[in-house]
C-alpha cells in the first residue's frame, strides 16, 4: 500500500498548531466582515443615533434653562447627563453586539452549512468561538473609539478621568460580557431560533442596569435583580471614572465584583458549550438548520 503522508505524520507542536488555527479563524471571520461593507456605516451611525434619542428626550424633560439638572445631579453625582447616557448606552451596545455577533456566530455557520465542516476537523472546537471573540474585540475597540470621538466633537462632551483606569474597567468587564456571549452561542446551537432570546437579554439589561437612568429610581425588587448583572457594575465604574474622575480605590469594589462575575460567566460559558456540543452530537442537530 502507498505510504500516504498525512497530518498524523506531521506531528506539529499542538499549541502552535492551535494558535495557527485561531489565526486562520480570525482571518476568515475578518474577511467575511469586510466583504459585507455596510458594517462600517453601522459602526459610524449607531454610536451617534442610539444615545441621541435618549439625550434629546432628557434635554426636553430638563425644562427651560435645564432646571431639572440639580435633581439629576443629586441622584447621579454629575450634571453631565449626556456623558451619563452615552456610557450606559455604550455598554448596552457592547453587550448587544456580542450577543448578535459572538452569540450567533455558530448559528450563522449552521445556517450557512459550514458548521459541520469545522466540526469535522481536529481543531479544538472552542477555538472557533475564541476566533470570533478576537474579531469582535477589534470591532468593539473601534466602536468605543468612534463613540467617544463623535460625542467629543459633535456634542462637545468632555470625558475626564484616567484613561488607563477606563481601559482596566473595560478589560475587567470583558470576561463577563463575552462569557454571556459564549453561553448564548452554546444555547443557540440547540435552540436555533435565537432572535427573540437576544431581544429578551438586551431588554433585560436595558431596564435593570440603568443604561439611561440611575438604579436608585428602580423599585426595590428590581434593584435586587440589577445587583446580579455584571453590566450594572461596569456602567457604574466607567461613569464614576469618566464623569466624576474617580480613582482606582473608588471603583476597586466594582472591579473586583466584575472579576468575580467574569470568572463565573466564563466557566458557565465553557461548560454550556461543552454540554450543548455533546447534546447536539447525541441528537444529530449540529447540521440542522
Amino acid at each position: 500500500m502507498t505510504n500516504l503522508p498525512n497530518v498524523l505524520n506531521l506531528k506539529p507542536n499542538r499549541l502552535l498548531a492551535e494558535l495557527n488555527a485561531i489565526r486562520a479563524i480570525v482571518i476568515k471571520q475578518w474577511l467575511h466582515t469586510v466583504r459585507y461593507p455596510t458594517w462600517v456605516l453601522q459602526l459610524l451611525i449607531w454610536p451617534l443615533i442610539f444615545p441621541a434619542a435618549y439625550i434629546l428626550t432628557a434635554r426636553a424633560f430638563a425644562g427651560p434653562e435645564q432646571i431639572a439638572l440639580p435633581v439629576f445631579n443629586a441622584a447621579t453625582g454629575t450634571d453631565n447627563y449626556i456623558g451619563y447616557i452615552v456610557i450606559g448606552t455604550l455598554i448596552w451596545m457592547w453587550q448587544n453586539i456580542v450577543l448578535w455577533n459572538v452569540g450567533l456566530s455558530l448559528r450563522e455557520e449552521q445556517l450557512r452549512g459550514t458548521l459541520e465542516s469545522n466540526w469535522l476537523t481536529p481543531v479544538w472546537r472552542f477555538s472557533l468561538l475564541i476566533g470570533s471573540i478576537l474579531v469582535q474585540t477589534v470591532t468593539i475597540f473601534f466602536f468605543i473609539a468612534v463613540t467617544f470621538l463623535e460625542y467629543r466633537f459633535l456634542f462637545q462632551i468632555h470625558f475626564q478621568g484616567n484613561i488607563g483606569l477606563v481601559i482596566l474597567a473595560f478589560a475587567v468587564a470583558f470576561p463577563s460580557i463575552y462569557g454571556i456571549g459564549i453561553t448564548f452561542a452554546s444555547l443557540v446551537l440547540r435552540i436555533k431560533e435565537a432572535n427573540s432570546l437576544v431581544h429578551f437579554v438586551r431588554g433585560f439589561v436595558m431596564i435593570f442596569c440603568g443604561i439611561t437612568f440611575p438604579i436608585s429610581v428602580l423599585p426595590g425588587w428590581m434593584k435586587s435583580v440589577s445587583q446580579w448583572l455584571p453590566q450594572t457594575y461596569v456602567i457604574r465604574a466607567i461613569r464614576e471614572i469618566t464623569l466624576v474622575g474617580a480613582d482606582f480605590n473608588m471603583v476597586k469594589q466594582d472591579l473586583l465584583i466584575l472579576l468575580g462575575f467574569g470568572f463565573i460567566w466564563m466557566v458557565i460559558g465553557y461548560f454550556a458549550f461543552t454540554f450543548m456540543d455533546r447534546l447536539s452530537r447525541r441528537s444529530g442537530s449540529i447540521g440542522q438548520y
Partner: peptide, 27 residues
Amino acid sequence: LAGERSIYWKLTGRENLMYFAALYHIP
C-alpha cells in the same frame, strides 16, 4: 458532506483551502 454548502462562498477557493488546512493543524 453536503457538498457545495460545506465551504465558504464569500471566500476564494484558495482562502477556503488555506483555512481548512489550518484547522487540520497543517503548518
